[in-house]
Amino acid sequence: MQPQMVMYDEEFQQISAVCERLAREANAKIVFLVDKNGQLIASVGATENLDTTSLASLTAGNIAATGGLAKLIGEKEFSILFHEGEKDNLHISIIGGRVILVVIFDSRSSLGLVRLRVKKASDELNKIFDGLMKKVQVPGAGSPFAEITDDDIDNLFSE
């Protein structure tokens, strides 16, 4: 079973900063991070007209499907996926085996540049997630929902 995924403000700021720098240095249009279950963690760039929730879910589905393919041929996973479109391209990579980094770029950048910058950003993101996981495992870092009452839950469904 996977551990509980938690995100705190401090780490969120660090992650967003890494993603923003990656978008800038790789000349990318959009960079986003998704967990393997399809939950969006962070997104930067021109995301106003983009359905990021759907993108996150489909990205996770895509990684899950190719991961299944990998296992069938005796690989652990395919850590990088690349989808080439007429205008925009998708570069998808798995970071530390737990989160998925997606970079959307067009002809203003190149696959080589994106790969180079992604590699550097991956190391940094990996460190942040390592720290985050340790923080979550500390006893007492309980769920904020530990104190909710049955009434709170009822109220959610009252309307």
């Binding site: 995924m5 938690v6 995100m7 705190y8 403000d9 969120f12 279950n37 929902f145």
Partner: peptide, 15 residues
């Protein structure tokens, strides 16, 4: 597993 995001104050669950 649910995803608790303190930064955006969201909790995400999968059914």
């Amino acid at each position: 597993m649910s995803f608790i995001n303190y930064s955006s104050r969201e909790i995400n669950c999968k059914i």
